[in-house]
Amino acid sequence: MAIYLSVHLHNIAFVLTLAFFVSMTSCANPYQYLMFVQQWPKSHGLWPSNFSVYELKNCTGAYLDLEKMKNNKSLQSELVKSWPNVKDNDHMKFWDSQYKKHGICSDNTFPQLEYFVVSNQMWKNYNISKMFESYPKSPIVPGAKYNKSDLLAAIKHVTKFDPNIRCKNSILSEVVICFNSRGRDVIDCDPAKTCNAPEIEFPG
């Protein structure tokens, strides 16, 4: 009985170790593209992803150098506008948590602060509120319902590529614009990741 229990516990330990190794390995894999996610009128995040792991998280690597971030006042000023902590005013804590969760997965491509610079520039170039307001067919404004096709078309009119839109209970929750791994060029997002509702409310 004692021998059986020892072997059984050894097997459990091996399985847990293997599961941990696999999870860490998946995060260590090179990402293939970036998802720029917005919850109007602000950024929600810049998420390295690949085609086998949709959203990489908690990868291994160096944590954000908070002293460098604190000393870069101009970048902080930009991020407060584009990527603030909407729950409270502790922006530094929020940026630190976002880097630990997502940004660290791109540290082989971007120096730490460049990750935030890239996200800020994406927000300036592809601000979802401005894209909706300027849609030539008819401006898309908060507080109304729209065909999903019109929401997608309004974004693609500017980006020239297919975005993702996410919704909860047919209410628009997030917009995703996909970029190549360097964040320089917009690419098509996976259409299978877009909300299935034919009519979607753009909340006020």
Rank of each mutant, 00 (worst) to 15 (best):
P139H: 03
F161Q: 14
K160A: 13
Y135M: 07
E133T: 11
K130T: 15
L152I: 15
K160S: 14
Y126A: 10
Y135C: 07
H157W: 04
K145F: 09
M131Y: 00
K137R: 13
K130L: 14
S134Y: 01
K148C: 08
P142L: 04
K156R: 09
T159V: 06
N147E: 14
D150C: 04
P136C: 06
N125E: 13
F161H: 15
I155S: 01
K137A: 15
K124F: 09
L151V: 05
K145W: 10
S149L: 12
K148P: 01
H157A: 13
M131K: 00
I128W: 00
N125S: 13
K156E: 13
I155E: 03
F161A: 14
F161P: 08
S134Q: 12
Y135D: 08
L152S: 04
V158I: 11
M131R: 01
K148E: 09
K137S: 15
Y126M: 09
K124R: 14
L152W: 03
I128D: 02
I140P: 03
I155Q: 00
L151C: 06
P139S: 08
K148D: 10
I128C: 00
K145S: 15
S149G: 09
S138L: 14
G143K: 01
S149K: 12
N127I: 04
K130E: 14
D150I: 05
M131A: 05
D150V: 07
P142N: 06
K160L: 11
K124N: 12
E133I: 10
S129W: 05
N147S: 13
G143Y: 02
K156F: 00
H157L: 08
P139N: 05
V141H: 03
N125V: 11
Y126T: 09
F132Y: 06
L152A: 08
F132W: 02
D150R: 00
